[in-house]
Structures are given as structure tokens and as C-alpha cells.
Design a protein around this nucleic acid. Sequence first.
DNA 1: CCTTCCAGTATCTAATGGGAACCAACATCC
DNA 2: GGATGTTGGTTCCCATTAGATACTGGAAGG
Lengths: 131, 131
Amino acid sequence: MLHRPDPFDAKCPTRQVLDRIGDRWAVLILISLEQRTMRFNELRRRIEAISQKMLSQTLKSLERDGLVNRKVFATVPVTVEYSLTPLGRTLSQTVHALTLWAETHIGEVAQAQQRYDQGEAAPETATTPPR
Amino acid sequence: MLHRPDPFDAKCPTRQVLDRIGDRWAVLILISLEQRTMRFNELRRRIEAISQKMLSQTLKSLERDGLVNRKVFATVPVTVEYSLTPLGRTLSQTVHALTLWAETHIGEVAQAQQRYDQGEAAPETATTPPR
DNA sequence: CCTTCCAGTATCTAATGGGAACCAACATCC
DNA sequence: GGATGTTGGTTCCCATTAGATACTGGAAGG
């Protein structure tokens, strides 16, 4: 690697990874599987309001990225188990920090939103130029 | 608060925060402003391929969430400076861990993708039932 | 016999993102 | 003095996407 990866370059592969994280369903699947291995419809019930389409789609790309294992059992009807790979586990831990942030600071965010919404009519104070 | 916030509940406010992080442009703006205060078009040049529409839209919601400060200077033409709030700085640090993950593990992800793409025709080994 | 369950796929529509044009008021270039 | 570029946006239109719904097909339960 000649230069350090730059997520601001749209062609940089780190951007792809960032886009994967920038997928709410992927995040919710990762933190679900962090707790334990789950089957398709288990995940569906766990993650409220996700459609079957988005679940299978997101799982497929997570599997492609080597973050999730898909294991098929030849039962009738067929059983499919999803679990995190070691790589996926390192990511889910990082992502876990984000959910922790959300739980910790949700109150401050809500307050800020209230202030913003009621203060919309406030006049903009003209400030002196910066230079 | 009676119960612990549950990001799997679509109505839970932590889910809103998670959705905000699940916005690639928001992430890129946060890590840009982590380095220094920037003006509108500075950000636009920094973050390749972002449209003016998405930039102003994302900045607006980041401001509403109390993560970003917007400061207007009465110059001609008007000058607008964007910076992180203290709250925004705590988030950007958490998000920074994600970009670090991306930079560190991008190689493994790329390898997994290659394996997946070429091994698509491989037959699925029938496994014994789990129970 | 009808419904439910398993793990998805196919199809249609509603929401969203991106591209380009446009704004006003000035500064600079030729 | 007319064209161009700069500031920070907004508005419109279209393409992509997400979400809702329906369907598969065999087996078990009532």
C-alpha cells in the first residue's frame, strides 16, 4: 500500500466499509448476532420492522464481506443459522461502542432537538467577520 | 426512564441516533469537523462527491441534534462556519474508532469478497440437523 | 381442510438520493 | 462593461432504492 487509505476518496475501499456501517440494518444485525447465533426468522422477530427482503439482502452482503457465517442444515423445512465470524466479532464490538454512545447521550440529543425546533423563529445575530 | 433503551424497538429514541450514524454523509462530516472548523464549501471540497443538497441537509440535522454549531458572519458574500459541539466531539471520537476499524480490516474484507464471488458455484454441503 | 411455520424470492409502489439549474450581491478578469 | 467566479444555499426532476405485499412448497398442528 503506497498511501494511507482516505475515506474521503469515493473510490477508496475504506469508503465501502464505511458505507456498510452506514447501514442501519447491518448494525442491528451485527449487535443481534453478537449475543448469540440466530436463525432467519429469529432475527426477523428480534429486529422489529425489518422486511424479509432487507434482512436476506443485508445478511447476504454481510456474508460476502466475511462478517457473518451462513450454515444450512438439511432439515425439513430447511434450517439456516447465522453467526458472527471472528472478523465480524471485532466489528460488532466497535459498533457496540456506538450503541453505548446512543444510550448515554440520547437525552442531550433530545434536548438539543427541542431547543432547535422552538427557537426556529429566533433572529440570526449578525456577527463580525472572522478575518 | 423505566426500562433500558432498546435499539430494536423502532420507536425507541436510541434508534434515531443509530439512524443518524447510519448516514454515511453524517459520518464523513463528523470526522472532517473533528480536525478543524470548516466552511460550507470547504466541506464540499473535502468530501468528494457529496452534493450541495445532501451537505446542507445533513448539516441541518446534525445542528438540530446538537452535534454541530452553525455560525454566520455578515460578510459579503456571507460566511458560514461549521464546528463540532462538545457533544459532537464525543460522538466523532467514537465514530473515529469505526474508520480505524475500516482501515485495519479492509484487506480481510476484500479477501472475503473475492472468496465469496469465485466460490459461488460451490455446492452446499448438507449438514446434519442441529437438534 | 385450513392455517402456520421454515427461508427466502418476485413484484409493485412509495420514499429517498443525486444532478443540475437557479438565487442575490459583490469581486475580479479581460 | 460584460463575462465569470465566489459565497451558502434552495428547488426541481429523475433514477435508484427501500418497504409492503404476495407467493413458493413441504410438513406439522388443530
